[in-house]
């Protein structure tokens, strides 16, 4: 056939077909998306520090292991309260002359998703220590350590932040470990990563592939039907207080033998879980873990009961009803 024997016609047709399909399937959708989406009105633009921190995030290739996308499937619910939408990324434009837009959605979740990390783990002390040596806070972590974002000094200067590192991870270091500007910026970026709620507070769409709800019967004793306290503890608390409940010296207090955990002042205890705590200068600030992660009374009860009965702790368990009353009160006062 003549067509197949003419290299101009043959290669021209192949190229035309490919370019045509490319325009339809990539370029037009990309331009449409770019044109028809704007950032949510209540979205916070990155601060100067956070923007500088994002550059550190990009330069070190963190996106190789951390996604920033909450898919509309039930299993992604742990990473954000609603599925991600185009508007979430609409504010991200070309980084600079040399570098392309960095939406950093990622394709690998070797480590956790970071869409909402600013809400899930806002503690600056935790983040700095975790960057210096992840295994100091999360024993099983395989994340790289980033010691080059820190320096060793004899004196902590004004406005500088010292990182308290457990002895096991500071062998051969005599001075004080101080966070460089880069580390502080990176933490500022991580803290800025929060899902913006839709202005009307609604969900943009449902999470798909829902799990079948396990029916909770209220009549048959609350303790037996509670969610798994140890799992919730691992997910929400162990990062700082450690799986063995012993905390980290100089950073996070132990729960093993803690008077608050073992004592009877349940209101105080629930308050700390829900709203955070910052009354002890020798330890880092605790964020509002319960509120930030929307923990339900059942979940808080399960966590409390796990803490009261683990690592040699041996205190009496509490009931969901007691905890629910306190949480309802906290939520009411918080609204005012």
């Amino acid at each position: 056939m003549e067509f197949f024997d003419n290299h101009k016609k043959l290669f021209g047709t192949a190229l035309g077909l490919f370019v045509g399909l490319t325009i339809v399937v990539a370029i037009i959708p990309a331009i449409e998306n770019q044109k028809n989406n704007a950032p949510l009105p209540n979205a916070m633009p990155l601060s100067a520090e956070a923007f500088a921190g994002k550059q550190i995030f990009i330069a070190n290739g963190c996106v190789a292991c951390h996604t920033q996308q909450v898919r509309n499937v039930e299993m992604d619910k742990v990473w954000g309260s609603r599925p991600g939408i185009a508007a979430d990324y609409a504010g991200i434009t070309r980084t600079d002359f040399w570098r392309n837009t960095a939406t950093l959605m990622g394709t690998e979740r070797t480590g956790p998703d970071l869409t909402n990390i600013g809400t899930r783990q806002p503690s600056s002390a935790w983040n700095l220590l975790h960057l210096y040596q992840p295994r100091a806070v999360v024993d099983k972590s395989i994340m790289p350590a980033y010691p080059w974002l820190f320096e060793i000094k004899n004196e902590v200067g004004k406005g500088e932040v010292e990182v308290i590192v457990p002895d096991a991870f500071r062998k051969g270091i005599n001075g004080k470990i101080v966070a460089k500007k880069e580390a502080l910026n990176l933490v500022a970026y991580l803290q800025s990563l929060k899902q913006t709620p839709l202005p009307d507070g609604k969900m943009p769409m449902d999470f798909l592939y829902k799990k079948e709800e396990k029916a909770i019967t209220k009549t048959g004793g609350s303790i037996a039907k509670l969610p798994d306290g140890q799992q919730l503890y691992t997910q929400n608390c162990a990062g700082c207080h450690q799986p063995n409940g012993e905390g980290l010296k100089g950073a996070f207090p132990p729960l093993k033998g803690s008077p608050i955990v073992l004592g009877n002042d349940l209101e105080f205890y629930v308050n700390i879980i829900m709203r955070g705590y910052d009354a002890r200068p020798e330890y880092a600030v605790m964020n509002a873990v319960g509120m930030d992660n929307n923990l339900t009374p059942e979940e808080v009860t399960a966590i409390i009961n796990h803490e009261k009965t683990s690592w040699g702790n041996n205190a009496e368990k509490v009931s969901v009803e007691e905890v629910k009353k306190i949480i309802d009160f906290i939520k009411q006062t918080a609204k005012k």
Partner: peptide, 30 residues
């Protein structure tokens, strides 16, 4: 064809006009 297409792909991937927001992700997938 492979060589022609590579050039098309690279141009689509590196021309900045359609890379804002999710545009970047659509182009990335492509």
């Amino acid at each position: 064809s492979a060589m022609m297409f590579l050039l098309v792909i690279a141009l689509v991937a590196y021309i900045p006009n359609w890379q804002n927001g999710l545009g970047e992700t659509i182009v990335q997938g492509y």
